[in-house]
Nucleic acid binder design. Structure first.
Lengths: 115, 115
DNA sequence: ATTTGATGCAACCTTGCGGTTGCGTGGTCG
DNA sequence: CGACCACGCAACCGCAAGGTTGCATCAAAT
């Protein structure tokens, strides 16, 4: 999909952001409420700082992350609202979401005891 | 993202499929358990039959839809399992999913009475 | 047998994504 | 000030995504 189209398509932007493994990894890393800087990420991952900056930019456009300048570094933090909305879209497709929500809870229970 | 990568990345493939507005529209249309044929879709949407076939192919690669040949036409049907898994991934990112699940339920309740 | 309708396959085109490199800029510390 | 570190911006590259057209194929209807 084209990015300019994704900008005028909130839901699409979120799913587009989640489609990339690197971006999902970043979200998982930020899941605990911590913040990250591009350079720090570049030290851990096999990617350039600029590449990470672009990824964080995509996450930002999707409203999944916020940047905050702090001295000479920029810290990125997760913004979970859009995530919940996306999950809601999935759960509601085609109705019968009551049943699906039940299965979702079951899945979460499994995953909780599993890992 | 590259498609071959998406194939070896189930979660990514699902989100990638959901990133496209047309594909989401198809999923919404199939949400009631009905089935669709590419030509019928091409009559309703401003897209070629082949374009729709490709989209349905992407949905198929993501495991979101199944094709079944029926006489001379091919009917596509929704396969909701992967959708639930994707919602589960979203709900579980970064822990604190109990709270998020609560908000999700609230969102769904709103959407139920709303539309 | 012919014709008509629904597909499948493949080539082709344009645009954007993911990634890099190079350079300019703004804080920080000695 | 001068050196350094973390960024931002822009150009560039390879390749896949989304879309089209054209043609071959298979099933059904007359």
């Amino acid at each position: 999909m084209r990015l300019d189209q994704a900008q005028s398509d909130d839901t699409g932007a979120v799913f587009f952001a989640l489609a990339d493994p690197t971006r999902r990894h970043l979200i998982e890393a930020l899941g605990d409420g911590s913040s990250v800087t591009p350079s720090a990420l570049a030290a851990e991952l096999p990617l350039t700082r600029q590449a990470l900056t672009k990824h964080l930019g995509v996450l930002g456009e999707a409203g999944l992350v916020t940047k905050r300048r702090e001295g000479r570094e920029t810290r990125y933090t997760l913004q979970p609202e859009r995530l919940t909305e996306a999950a809601a879209w999935i759960a509601v497709v085609g109705g019968a979401w009551e049943e699906r929500l039940g299965r979702l809870e079951a899945l979460l229970q499994e995953r909780r005891s599993g890992s």
